[in-house]
Nucleic acid binder design. Structure first.
Length: 193
DNA sequence: GGCACGATTGCT
DNA sequence: GCAATCGTGCCT
């Protein structure tokens, strides 16, 4: 029997910046009513709370951030601007509230609408807070290695939309596939491709 | 209990 | 440039 391509919890337990880079090129899979929606991850951001001023877990544990303090390999989904859901993957050791935000997908299979940008990604994948805390080893949502992984030319830049975070906003903790047209495009903040 | 604001997006 | 829209966290 072929080894599973699904990433195991140990993958997410690694250093968060390592995970954020390694996720590029992986496939995000969502199962809905027996159908599989698949997207190739082309853009991520690392959040290293509680020290990281830009992270939701900055300053400590709250009901919202609770899942990030738990074991790695779970989904952290939050609602932003009352309109959009954003999907994060909990990383690093239990008790370390780190996460990686998924910002863009290249459509592979059964993805309706646009997938560039964290809110649009979740809409296309039908991801909302019902999946907050879900284990990525479960039946609804996971990440797997593609059958034929292609090398990725990785670009990096400051994270988007966190200008309030002072020095932390300048950390180059956004990673993306330099060759993908599906990377979200916020002209100035995104830096060069 | 009230209130300001956000790891966004799309329209003016 | 700014409205949409509501959960969260802090305060008043």
């Amino acid at each position: 029997m072929a080894p599973t391509r699904r990433l195991a919890p140990d993958f997410y337990r690694q250093d968060t910046l390592t995970v954020a880079r390694a996720l590029l090129g992986m496939h995000l899979v969502r199962r809905i009513d027996g159908e599989r929606r698949v997207g190739r991850i082309v853009e991520t951001e690392a959040y290293l709370g509680p020290e990281d001023r830009a992270a939701h877990s900055w300053g400590g544990r709250t009901p919202r951030t609770e899942v990030m303090f738990g074991p790695p390999g779970r989904a952290y989904v939050y609602l932003i601007y009352g309109l959009w859901n954003c999907l994060n993957l909990v990383t690093a050791a239990e008790g370390t509230p780190h996460a990686v935000l998924l910002r863009a997908l290249e459509p592979i299979r059964a993805l309706p609408g646009r997938t560039s940008g964290p809110g649009l990604l979740c809409r296309a994948m039908d991801i909302d807070r019902r999946l907050n805390g879900a284990e990525l080893s479960g039946p609804d949502l996971w990440i797997e290695r593609p059958v034929r992984p292609a090398p990725v030319r990785i670009g990096r830049s400051a994270r988007i939309g966190v200008d309030y975070a002072g020095d932390w906003a300048r950390r180059p903790w956004r990673f993306f596939d330099r060759d993908s047209p599906f990377v979200s495009g916020r002209r100035s903040a995104s830096g060069r491709r």
